[in-house]
Nucleic acid binder design. Structure first.
Lengths: 349, 349
DNA sequence: TTGAAAGCGGTACCAC
DNA sequence: GTGGTACCGCTTTCAA
């Protein structure tokens, strides 16, 4: 088994073994080692076994960089993450790392946050020869997009509908908004409001539109729109603003376009002395873990994150394969989670 | 300026330009291009300018993989992240990406979550020739540690004191516990409790020990220990358990060893009808953003995340430089944030 | 079934 | 100052 004794210091214990060194030790050519290690059927079983043993003993690991250089794939997927203050991005990331690993890919963390991607980062994309790029939320800078396009690096957006020419996987946000509107109306709510997210984001717009559209087409007054943002703090402010409204104007149900925002709304309302859901019902969209339990128990439409990431990687790997596929966009239906932040039965009167 | 028209399809627009192609176009040798691009002073200004212009026009980016192959650094730092349910890890990550980028490094996301690192992941570490490894929380599997040691890849742990032989940067957790204990005692609290985190983690132990130690040495009864965990849910359960205690046994102040845990404790107490801080004071450690505002306004000791990551990268880059430095451990003092989850003035009686 | 050699994109050493 | 060349580790023809 040849366990090497713990090296005296942090000394790089000898040279790393390479295909060449293995070849020498095995008395064969480098090409033979290469083939043996990749289970090429042409190599005789004995030789293959001998080389495999040698490799294991030497703790050999192939140098992917060299392999990539020859023309192979890097096995790297560039990841661009949205504002991490919203736990949804952390959840997407967790899912993405795990699923990418299962498919033999590693994630190169390019950017975190909403800010635009710096040039240096955009270049990393090209310098490291990433096979593809996974983007959540944050806008891909035109620079980065150009680099991807110019190099034939496929791009897939997750949780965001592309303004440009990328592939995308998203939750059917419009439908999510409609489902929630239907739910609230069925429970007898009549004065609705929606707290919007970051202006210009498709998620916020689609959810709000679906919600408002359903209400309007039911013949009711369009929900009041309140400017929110992407954070709990923004929701909190909105909640306080709502609480400050004259009672007869106060909505009886409000949608925060994301869970984190809706949580803020709940806290804002409660801080102002109102009760949720007794005075005001609150619902969200996303399905983040933090909103599921007390003190929120948020009724929401949960995004099918696992499936979203899976389909995102599907789109990506198909295109990494080199196939000239058309732009594709996948919409996945969310799941309504009935919890306790909204009154869901018509008041008896 | 030569903006290329948007390629008809996602066609890899021609070949990527390389040092060789630039050399040909410039009518010089490849080595000259290499030197010119790296601002080697030996190259004449004119040639350098000409090559720079050519490179810019062609949208040339060096292939880091090739550069690394020659013996250079990969510029890659492996990142292992703890259980992302705790926002502290997301914050560390955000900080790490930004600071690493500023130093010219990219992060290879190796693992997220508490689970042990799979073998495939550990190998990626070696295959991609990462220059160093940054670990938060999650135990580095012995496999991964062996790979790092065997290849002379330096490892630095952030937010975790190493059981093994790695370098580390952490908050002075013991001191944090003491500071909070002193604060609570000064405000007249006498019946203290501590809700512990994941068993066996140094952060949880050190914080709890510092807290308990200070109380004991002040001549008071040691704080009651309540088993918690790493999540809001664990804290919530602990909060409910505390609320269920007979009044005369109920602690008047409790430390949740992490903010997320303390938030859970607060919610658990409140759900049971108790008021924080009127009935029970609650404090935490970490300084996560979510705990700062309402409804928590958690009094806590904030970890100096920015400095922690900076020092972590310092340790790493110094060792990546090849210097044979001794194991090093850096403890950084946190900052007490007095907010409103704890009664901080002695009750007048 | 195996070996030899070329080459991927750079860097660095040695000449000139 | 600049060019030639060898080489990093691996894959892939092309021969044998």
């Amino acid at each position: 088994m040849d366990h090497e004794p713990p090296p005296p210091a942090a000394m790089p214990s000898g040279r790393r073994s390479t295909i060449g060194s293995l070849a020498r030790r095995a008395g064969v050519a480098a090409s033979t080692v290469s083939r043996a290690l990749r289970d090429d059927p042409r190599i005789s079983p004995e030789v293959r076994a001998r080389i495999a043993a040698l490799a294991a003993e030497a703790g050999y690991t192939p140098n992917i960089l060299a392999r990539t250089l020859v023309g192979g794939r890097s096995g790297l997927i560039g990841l661009v993450l949205g504002p991490i203050e919203n736990p949804i991005y952390a959840e997407i990331m967790r899912e993405a790392v795990a699923q990418a690993a299962a498919r033999g890919f590693r994630l190169l963390l390019l950017h975190v946050g909403q800010g635009p991607i710096e040039d240096a980062t955009a270049e990393a994309l090209s310098q490291y020869r990433v096979d593809g790029c996974l983007i959540t939320s944050a806008e891909l800078s035109s620079r980065a997009a150009a680099i991807c396009a110019g190099n034939g690096v496929p791009v897939v957006m997750v949780n965001r509908v592309p303004r440009q020419h990328e592939n995308a996987v998203a939750c059917d946000n419009r439908a999510a908004g409609e489902v929630l509107a239907r739910l609230l109306l069925a429970a007898g709510h009549r004065r609705l409001a929606v707290v919007t997210g970051n202006p210009g984001t498709s998620t916020s717009q689609d959810r709000a539109d679906g919600f408002s559209g359903f209400v309007s087409s039911a013949g009711l007054a369009a929900p009041r729109r309140i400017e929110g943002g992407a954070s709990h703090a923004a929701g909190f402010a909105a909640g306080q603003a709502i609480a400050a409204l004259p009672t007869e104007e106060r909505p009886d149900a409000v949608l925060g376009v994301s869970d984190i925002l809706a949580m803020g709304v709940m806290d804002g309302l409660r801080e102002a002395g109102l009760s949720v859901p007794t005075d005001v019902s609150v619902v969200g969209v996303d399905g983040i873990a933090a909103a599921a339990g007390p003190p929120y128990r948020l009724t929401t439409v949960a995004q099918p994150l696992q499936a979203m990431v899976a389909r995102g990687l599907d789109l990506l790997t198909a295109r990494i394969g080199g196939a000239a596929l058309p732009q594709e966009m996948v919409l996945l239906r969310g799941t309504l989670m009935r919890r306790h932040s909204a009154r869901l039965t018509a008041p008896e009167d």
